[in-house]
């Protein structure tokens, strides 16, 4: 079993040290050993560095926005009448269930230049959202946040219900304000869940693919290329499998710190229960 799961991972590392192109696919010629050539190329590759910068900025924006919105919604759910809470839960589960390739198409339609509902709501006339990649990527961010918030909000809400009511009650009796209760009691109790959610969000948002690829009709301009997209384009269109693998390996290595952190948390949470 470990062999089946580990095999692709090992192979991608091996590939990243080889010269692999169309010639190898069509002629069965053995790939040449490239030593560190692919990695040296990364260091001097301008497109790689700008993709890396874009990926980091996007990830930070997506994680910050989805965590802020998700936690706020969870706190809000505690404070609204039961019928609104039930309706919000229903809608969030519905939004969570929508596959990302579907939601991306829906957002593409909502931001359509000629008949998109967003232009009409904002009174923008025939604004094209995709000429400027910064605006296009903000649509991507909206799709990702829209899709990520349900999981964060519902999980945080579940954690909030674990906050002992007696302690909150006692603090109130002692004269604590709502803000103090939130900072001194609620947040410390749900902190472990928030940490795990943040780590997971970083891991997921760093590798966002569908929401950019489909939004840009499977041909994202350089201004839209994140590390995942860059590696995919190099392999799919450029047939530079060795180089694309090297980019993918670097992506994994960059995520490794967050992964190890998440793993430790998960293992510790498991031992505690």
């Amino acid at each position: 079993m470990a062999a089946v799961l580990g095999f692709p991972l090992v192979r991608v590392v091996v590939l990243s040290f080889q010269d692999w192109g169309l010639a190898q696919i069509f002629t069965d010629r053995a790939p040449e050993f490239a030593a560190g050539r692919n990695y040296r190329r990364i260091v001097t590759d301008r497109a790689f560095w700008s993709a890396l910068r874009r990926t980091v900025v996007l990830t930070v924006a997506m994680v910050a926005l989805s965590m802020a919105a998700g936690v706020s919604i969870a706190l809000l759910m505690e404070r609204v009448p039961a019928w609104i809470r039930r309706a919000v839960t229903f809608v969030l589960v519905l939004a969570w269930a929508v596959p990302s390739f579907v939601s991306t198409q829906v957002f593409a339609w909502m931001t359509d230049q000629n008949a998109g509902v967003l232009n009409s709501l904002l009174g923008l006339g025939r604004h094209n959202w995709y000429i400027d990649s910064a605006q296009g990527l903000s649509v991507t961010t909206a799709i990702v946040v829209w899709g990520a918030v349900p999981f964060i909000a519902i999980t945080t809400y579940a954690a909030l219900t674990q906050v002992p009511a007696e302690i909150v009650e006692a603090a109130r009796v002692d004269g604590a304000t709502g803000w103090q209760v939130l900072r001194r009691i609620t947040l410390p109790v749900i902190r472990p869940v928030l940490v795990i959610l943040t780590a997971l969000s970083v891991i997921w948002d760093f590798q966002v693919f569908n929401q950019i690829w489909i939004l840009r009709n499977a041909a994202p301009a350089p201004g839209y290329q994140t590390l995942s997209i860059y590696s995919y384009v190099k392999a799919y269109q450029g047939h530079e499998y060795g180089y694309a693998s090297a980019v993918a390996v670097v992506t994994v290595l960059l995520l490794l710190v967050v992964m190890v952190f998440y793993l430790r948390r998960i293992v510790r949470a498991g031992e505690g229960s």
Binding site: P8, R11, V12, Q207, S228, Y241, A248, T251
Partner: peptide, 9 residues
């Protein structure tokens, strides 16, 4: 692991 890294192998 990002799925992009598994696609090529």
């Amino acid at each position: 692991v990002p799925h992009v890294a598994l696609v090529i192998p």
